[in-house]
């Protein structure tokens, strides 16, 4: 064991790892929020509840149908994504022409309903979800111990984030999305079914949240309020990265996870507030966010 700035290396790397794990979830969730905000102009407060639904779907799939972690990683996002599509068609689509506040209020109401239903049936104590066997154990890297599951979370999150970025910024489908974000009327007049694209985008963003929820299930408790404790930080991440910026959401997500982890090592008292301090500074210096375009 050696020391860095008077801190034992295991503690430093341990917190760095926790920071990266948290960052993986921040990035996945803020990415979904950014995609949804860009296309729908809706601040999807229900994101945290949809993340929780992903974890619950994994739990229920395992206990009711026997479908394990890997199956749930695919099926749960699809199920929750379909739920998102129903929400968009029935409720959200009527709000696009109104102020952001209406979307925020509606999705906040959805959170209360979804969390209430989950609490009613499963209580708030939290349910256990076992790690898949293939990812149990870990590697001793010499300077620290790396649990396999945590390594998987980081790699999977990074892969999904970068794949999403690639599709949006580098493909033809992504060009439709970006163009429709700017001028939906004209894109539609070119022959593209923009309302369908909006619905699918919301479904995809919601599925991303559910995917994060499944990945979180073995690490955190599966509980009705597991998302609410995360959502405020995730919103701060989105504000810091810049509303609607894809790369901004990914980089700030991971970056702030790491900053939070390091703060826990060097100045533990500030670890819960450091993200909000950064948010305040960013808002003062660059109101559009680190990666945001000025409107």
């Amino acid at each position: 064991m050696f020391e860095i700035f008077g801190i034992p290396s295991t503690a430093l790397f341990g917190q760095l790892l926790i920071g990266l794990i948290n960052g993986s979830f921040y990035a996945l969730l803020s990415l979904g929020l950014a995609v949804i905000f860009g296309m729908l102009n809706v601040i999807n407060f229900a994101h945290c509840a949809q993340y929780m639904m992903g974890a619950f779907a994994a739990f229920l799939l395992l206990n009711l149908t026997g479908l394990g972690y890997w199956g749930a990683l695919i099926v749960a996002p699809i199920l929750v994504g379909i739920f998102g599509i129903i929400v968009e068609r029935c409720l959200l689509q009527w709000l696009y022409k109104l102020d952001h506040l209406y979307g925020l209020l509606l999705t906040f109401g959805l959170v209360l309903i979804i969390e209430g239903v989950a609490r009613n049936f499963y209580g708030s104590a939290g349910l256990p979800y076992t790690m898949p066997e293939s990812l149990q154990g870990g590697q001793n890297l010499g300077f620290m111990f790396l649990p396999n599951y945590r390594a998987w979370v980081i790699v999977a999150s990074l892969t999904v984030c970068l794949a999403t970025w690639f599709v949006i910024e580098r493909t033809r489908l992504g060009a439709y999305l970006r163009a429709a974000t700017e001028n939906p009327t004209l894109v539609r007049a070119f022959g593209i079914n923009v309302p369908l694209m909006i619905t699918l985008t919301y479904g995809f963003g919601v599925a991303l949240a559910a995917f994060a929820g499944v990945m979180a299930a073995p690490i955190y408790n599966v509980s009705p309020q597991m998302g609410s404790s995360l959502i405020i930080v995730v919103f701060a991440v989105v504000v810091i990265g810049g509303m609607g910026s894809i790369m901004g959401a990914i980089v700030t997500g991971f970056g702030l996870g790491i900053v939070e982890g390091l703060t826990k090592v060097f100045f533990p008292e500030a670890s819960n507030t450091v993200i909000f301090v950064i948010m305040a500074i960013v808002l003062l210096v660059r109101p559009a966010g680190l990666f945001g375009r000025r409107a």
Partner: peptide
């Protein structure tokens, strides 16, 4: 409008509609 476009009519709008992103 997307169905009108598919019928074979194309619009070049007054404000040109070039996408910045």
């Amino acid at each position: 409008s997307n169905q009108v476009a598919r019928a074979g009519i194309a619009l070049c709008p007054e404000e040109r509609g070039i996408f910045a992103s």
